[in-house]
């Protein structure tokens, strides 16, 4: 069953969400999500690399010998990461500084490898780029959710504006490393609970009217 072009994008956000569903790319999703702006910046940077590398790898998929495809993927992805890093250093130096070591580390992000291996190596250029866009948007959204929760609870602010009122006492724990682990754990658990509920409902429906 062939997916439509729109589904190619939306699947990366919903059923194949890289962070919450496939549990890929956890290092940056915990490390840079102390504020929403950092999370969004990371997401956009990774999306750029995803679209470019997926498109490029799909373009040359016919001439890559299958045995050495992983080193070739690594080089192509690292090249785009270097390009992105140089652009970032020039246009958004503050963000580049805030993300720090995690900008070059996009080169070893599992999401990008997973999309290259699962999708770009087998599909056309257009579809691969859309798949990259979808996975990138899913990653950005996940980071934004994590970062938003952590910034609101840990700092009482969102994008630097106070949103929780004067009397709010920030829970400092949430912007510390431990808070990242907790929030991620509870979000994944909540999604799993939702899945289990939906499954139980389905089986009840099936049992009542076969």
């Amino acid at each position: 069953m062939q997916r439509t072009l729109v589904q190619e994008v939306t699947k990366g956000i919903t059923i194949e969400n890289p962070v919450f569903r496939l549990l890929l790319g956890l290092c940056p999703s915990l490390a840079v999500t102390t504020s929403l702006i950092n999370g969004l910046g990371m997401g956009v940077a990774a999306t750029f690399v995803l679209i470019c590398s997926n498109g490029m790898l799909s373009l040359i998929r016919g001439i890559i010998p299958p045995k050495i495809r992983i080193p070739i993927y690594i080089i192509v992805i690292a090249t785009f990461v270097s390009i992105m890093e140089m652009m970032m250093e020039v246009y958004t130096p503050a963000l580049h500084k805030a993300l720090g070591i995690f900008v070059p580390l996009i080169a070893v992000n599992c999401i990008i490898f997973a999309r290259a291996e699962i999708f770009a190596g087998k599909n056309g250029v257009g579809r691969s780029m859309l798949d990259g866009l979808g996975a990138g948007l899913g990653f950005t959204l996940s980071l934004a959710i994590l970062a938003g929760i952590r910034e609101i609870l840990g700092d009482g602010k969102l994008l630097g504006y106070p949103v929780m009122g004067q009397s709010y006492e920030p829970i400092l724990l949430m912007i510390l490393p431990a808070g990242g682990f907790f929030i991620l754990g509870f979000l994944v658990a909540a999604l799993k609970l939702y899945d289990l509920r939906a499954e139980a409902k389905k089986s009840v429906l099936l049992a009542s009217n076969p």
Partner: peptide
């Protein structure tokens, strides 16, 4: 462990507690 917390979620929470201890 509650069914929904099994696997990665409980590992995340454990990691969080360890991070607190290491602080």
């Amino acid at each position: 462990i509650p069914e929904s917390m099994k696997g990665v979620p409980i590992a995340c929470v454990t990691g969080g507690l360890m991070a607190l201890a290491f602080m």
